[in-house]
Nucleic acid binder design. Structure first.
Length: 1057
RNA sequence: GGGCGUGUAACUCAACGGCUAGAGUGCCUCCCUUACAAGGAGGAAGUUGGGGGUUCGAAUCCCUCCACGCCCACCA
């Protein structure tokens, strides 16, 4: 017989089976092999980040699904990989280089910096993938991708090219969130808003031509006054009506600006009712300018956040200095009216933690709204003139134009069910966000990323002749194949002055000609020469090689890289080899399930659907599973700076990978958040000390391991709580974060380990044969029925992505039914072949059911079982699979389901529990005790059949049953109503206490009886409720009456009456 | 302001219109019974946030109030 160690050793199991699985190659998906495909692409973790509990949850859930489908016989692919995470990674490496070498990125240069980031990436990618492996993730590691690798780059290039060609990508001036520190634009979602101490200044501008007339306005950002191009009031505001159309003087830069009326911008209730308009530095003002283009737009900032030449005398000043100077100057002019301190919500950049500056700059956009793209020609390489139209038609339910745009395509896919969300409510965030159809700014002023494959030149023509010469006679455009079917490059030409896309060059040449001719016709000596005309020429090329040999040197490649999400958006098809028609793409696309968290539903999920549909015509995945976010015990997000984070690797170290996985799967409910109370682990003795709020964010410098516990349990030594510490402190070691919630999984693993150990020790002479339920004793039928019911429930839960239910179901069945009851009952039947087969068969089933969640444990038990019982099976006898990874999922056990037997055993359990309660409450010594039990015929038969139960009563009671047991006439005996056992208790109990207890019970039962009587007396209930509910109420009425009778008799006996 | 969610035992969560609202942890009592003390047996502990309503029947559905969380928008 196989003798296993006394406890489950997670570490040994992990190293052993990881190696075994790798060697066997179970996780490699081969498109040539049979089986219904089931594919998941991993949400690629950021290469620079360490894995946190969110990753642990996210990846464990994917692994559960993949392992489960693999066991079901699917051809299962889990595609792993990492994300280059543009801004985050570059920022980290830049900071590192600055800290170590005191060099900025400009000192290094583009190539050197990118080279350094690649080195960094190689190192951290290895680490992060290794961590995933340690968690047991059964990814197809041979296929590991990176969003910047050649395969992905090819897909990115192809997508950009097609979008450029088809007019989905355009160049536009836009107000972007400018990070003046990193000197890049950042997306809305890469910013956060924080209440910040600021001010609310009130100034006045003098009205031109009306001495002593001023108009007052307030602002939170005085420095932007340099860029004011108007003052704005509400059209119906009586106070200012007469001033609309007048001008005021901006005294600092000596510019006259108009007073305009705009009901959307000005709110008469707010401040003075008059607001300054700075289109280039405020999103609302920008919108106002779009409605009132005549006021003009003036950018006053340099990319580094200092004031530019438009700021006149303030040029060169940093923003805060400019603010001081402007206020001072206004004050000196007597135009400053006062300042109020105010807390202002200010946007910050997530990466550099510096304030965001709304900044006007040239960016590349992907058009989201509906339009009619004309391939190869009419791309919209201009600022959108339809901004207002967008606003009117926004919303997922807005009327559709003929040709749905990217956003609409993605909306439709969810609305018609091609993509389904679990839980369904998350569809809302997706649809609402896409419904806005806001264009997507895809350029980033970074070096780390996919470089934008567009070459640009500006050609300025001083004579119309030159235009013609440049465009036609030199043959430049023809060569570049504008409008032809060139599939390597596309060229677009834009008139610089107004951004008009030029598609008809003959017409354009004629237009310029006409202007010149008009000038010549005037025939005066001092005719001004025609204004020079400039054209911006953009060439997008699919291939760098082609670009090198074909694009004239006057063109330069765009310096920017693409938003990280651009490559992430392609992930489901790019990783499978698109645009090549690979076998993988054909077999696994569309993928099956995407598992992610709710905060990237818009950023990532929506964009994957869009690009998937655009590139392949098919949705990227059918199901989107959104799992909760893991919070600490106070419901707050985990973060490094708070120090309330838990490292999954520490959990693996402390409790094992199976326990970690079991824990996080248990947390995966359908709620938004899950709480995981965090403890500090004493670095000296390992005791877990629950984290308090004051321990967070470095507010507590020192914790002393509690000394009031027994010696040896805690050590009483001081340490530093887990937190944002930058340095090591030799005196005070820093605690790790952990959580005792993972004990549940560890204990469960050990329980199963020991159940297996017990079974394997008792398999002397084991042979296997199929089991016929009809020929088996009650308890065997019962446990097989419970196994079948559990297996079905687990399968249902997985199908519906109710993960926490999976762990709960298996835990309850394995521990509370199999171990606590069936194994105990089996102890009287050690050599019974049927019992051995049931033990092995049920254990085998449990191992399969827990396999997806606890793969290391499952494999350990599986291999042990294979040694002793290599041939097994409940319905047919066959050799077991060589690994739990590829063991068949139990889904054909329905024949064992037997409700009658489950009911009998449930009654028996009640009875046994009742006896145990009496023993525990009253019989503290081990005096053997005669216990007579009277029960009805059905129970009696069951009990006779289940004779070994007597042992469950503790081995000190005798157990008599049958129809004719008389109540012993013995003073001090007590009858428990729920099982009618007569227990002699003379001298063992305190009559007063017990009387009280019984009185309380009588009150409760009487109340319940009254309710039941009332119910049954209610005609509506008898008619309206389902018959089985009525029947059950009738039964419980009879039962309650008996119970009350018994209780009253007990009470009378106790009180000696 | 708009949307989504949460509130059940001391803590973390189940229960999704129907048996006396259940687990795990913690707490109390007993037990190292040869699978397991990372264990076994039992116990105490709940006005299901408050208030209305619908229903024969509500933790569950509706209304309302309170508290909390997340997302989006706005805040000169």
């Amino acid at each position: 017989m196989l003798e296993l160690p006394k406890a489950y050793d997670a570490k040994i199991a992990q190293s052993k089976w990881l190696k075994f699985w790798n060697e066997k190659g179970y996780f490699h998906a081969d498109p040539a092999k049979p089986g219904e495909p089931y594919a998941i692409v991993i949400p690629p973790p950021n290469v620079t980040g360490a894995l946190h509990m969110g990753h642990a949850l996210n990846n464990t859930l994917q692994d559960v699904l993949i392992r489960w489908r693999r066991m079901q016989g699917y051809n299962a692919l889990w595609m792993p990989g990492t994300d280059h995470a543009g801004i985050a990674t570059q920022a980290v490496v830049e900071r590192l280089i600055f800290n170590t070498e005191k060099k900025t990125r400009r000192d290094l240069g583009r190539d050197a910096l990118v080279e350094k980031i690649w080195q960094w990436k190689d190192k951290y990618e290895k680490r992060i993938l290794g961590q995933l492996q340690e968690m047991g993730a059964s990814c197809d590691w041979q296929r590991t991708r990176f969003t910047l690798d050649d395969t992905c780059a090819k897909a990115v290039r192809e997508t950009f090219f097609r979008m450029f060609r088809d007019g989905y990508i355009y160049r536009g001036k836009r107000l972007v969130n400018w990070d003046a520190q990193l000197q890049t634009s950042v997306a809305d979602d890469e910013t956060y808003t924080e209440d910040t101490k600021g001010g609310f200044w009130t100034f006045k501008y003098p009205v031109v031509g009306q001495p002593e007339t001023f108009i007052r306005f307030s602002t939170t950002r005085p420095e932007t006054m340099l860029g004011d191009t108007a003052l704005c009031v509400h059209p119906s505001d009586e106070r200012y009506k007469h001033l609309i159309g007048q001008k005021v003087l901006q005294p600092l830069v000596n510019r006259e600006i108009p007073i305009i009326a705009d009901g959307l911008l000005a709110d008469p209730e707010l401040g003075t009712g008059c607001v300054k308009v700075t289109p280039a530095h405020d999103p609302n003002d920008y919108a106002c300018w779009q409605r009132n283009p005549q006021i003009g737009i003036l950018n006053i900032l340099n990319p580094d956040g200092t004031i530019n030449v438009n700021g006149g005398p303030y040029a060169g000043l940093a923003r805060d200095k400019a603010r001081e100077a402007v206020v001072k100057a206004m004050d000196e002019l007597g135009l400053f009216e006062g300042k109020e301190d105010r807390v202002i919500p200010l946007k910050y950049s997530d990466r550099s933690k510096t304030p965001i500056e709304p900044y006007l700059s040239d960016q590349w956009f992907v058009k989201m709204s509906d339009f009619e793209p004309t391939p190869h020609r009419a791309g919209d390489v201009s600022p959108p003139s339809d901004a207002d139209a967008n606003r009117v038609t926004r919303g997922a339910d807005a009327p559709r134009s003929e040709k749905p745009g990217l956003a609409q395509m993605a909306i439709d896919a969810v609305k018609d069910g091609r993509v389904q969300f679990f839980p369904k409510r998350y569809e809302n965030s997706y649809l609402d966000w896409l419904g806005e159809k806001r264009d997507w700014c895809v350029s980033r002023q970074l070096w780390w990323g996919h470089r934008i494959p567009v070459w640009h030149a500006r050609i300025t023509c001083t004579t119309p002749h030159q235009v013609v010469a440049s465009f036609f006679q030199d043959g430049l455009i023809e060569d570049l194949s504008l409008g032809s079917d060139n599939d390597v490059a596309v060229c677009k030409v834009v008139r610089s002055s107004d951004g008009e896309l030029i598609t008809d060059f003959v017409a354009e040449a004629k237009r310029v000609d006409d202007i010149v001719r008009k000038n010549e016709d005037q025939d005066t000596a001092d005719v001004p020469l025609p204004e020079p005309v400039s054209y911006d020429i953009y060439i997008c090329s699919l291939s760098d090689e082609w670009a090198k040999s074909h694009i004239p040197p006057v063109f330069t490649q765009d310096e920017d890289v693409l938003d990280t999400w651009f490559s992430s958006a392609l992930w489901p098809h790019s990783t499978l080899g698109w645009p090549e028609e690979t076998p993988e793409l054909k077999r696994y696309y569309p993928t099956s399930t995407l598992v992610t968290s709710r905060d990237i539903i818009t950023l990532w999920v929506a964009r994957m659907v869009m690009t998937g549909l655009y590139n392949t015509g098919e949705v990227p995945f059918k199901h989107v599973v959104i799992h909760p976010k893991i919070m600490d015990g106070f419901g707050e997000g985990m973060s490094k700076s708070k120090g309330n984070g838990v490292d999954p690797l520490d959990i693996i170290e402390l409790y094992g990978a199976d326990a970690m996985r079991f824990g996080v799967v248990s947390l995966a409910t359908e709620t938004q958040d899950s709480r995981l109370p965090v403890s500090n682990v004493c670095p000296h003795c390992g005791t877990l000390i629950p984290q308090k709020k004051e321990h967070q964010s470095g507010r507590t410098r020192q914790i002393v391991c509690p000394g009031d516990k027994p010696a040896g349990v805690t050590c009483g030594k001081p340490f530093r709580p887990s937190g944002p510490w930058l340095d090591e402190d030799p005196e005070l070691p820093t605690a790790k974060g952990a959580s005792d919630r993972f004990e549940m999984g560890r204990n469960f693993a050990n329980k199963l380990w020991n159940a297996t150990r017990f079974i394997l020790m008792n398999l002397e002479g084991y042979t296997n044969a199929p089991l016929d339920p009809k020929a088996l004793p009650t308890e065997d039928r019962w446990i097989l029925s419970r196994l079948a019911t559990t297996a079905k429930a687990v399968t249902d839960a997985l199908n519906a992505y109710r993960f926490s239910e999976v762990t709960r179901l298996v835990y309850d069945f394995a521990w509370n039914e199999f171990c606590d009851w069936y194994i105990e009952m089996s102890k009287g039947r050690r050599t019974d072949p049927a019992c051995q087969r049931v033990l092995v068969g049920v254990l085998d089933g449990i191992v399969r059911l827990i396999g997806p969640v606890m793969p290391f444990l499952a494999e350990s038990l599986w291999q042990a079982l294979n040694e002793v019982a290599p041939t097994r099976g409940l319905l047919e006898s066959k050799p077991a699979e060589e690994s739990a990874c590829i063991a068949a999922w139990p889904n054909d056990l329905g024949v064992f389901i037997d409700d009658t037997t489950e009911g009998s055993i449930a009654r028996m359990q009640d009875l046994v529990r009742g006896v145990r309660e009496i023993r525990n409450r009253y019989i503290l010594d081990k005096t053997p005790l005669d216990l007579s039990v009277k029960c009805n015929d059905v129970v009696a038969m069951e009990l006779n059949a289940l004779a070994p139960f007597v042992k469950l009563l503790g081995g000190i009671a005798t157990f008599a049953c049958g129809p004719a047991v008389k109540k012993p006439k013995q003073s001090g005996s007590i009858v428990r109503p729920d099982f009618e056992a007569y227990v002699p208790l003379a001298g063992l109990i305190d009559n007063a206490t017990e009387s009280k207890k019984i009185e309380k019970e009588i009150t409760q039962k009487q109340k319940l009886l009254d309710v039941t009587v009332a119910k049954l007396g209610n005609e509506n209930f008898v008619k309206g409720a389902p018959p089985e509910v009525v029947e059950q109420q009738r039964n419980s009425l009879v039962e309650l009456e008996t119970q009350l009778k018994t209780l009253r008799a007990n009470l009378a006996e106790l009180q000696g009456t």
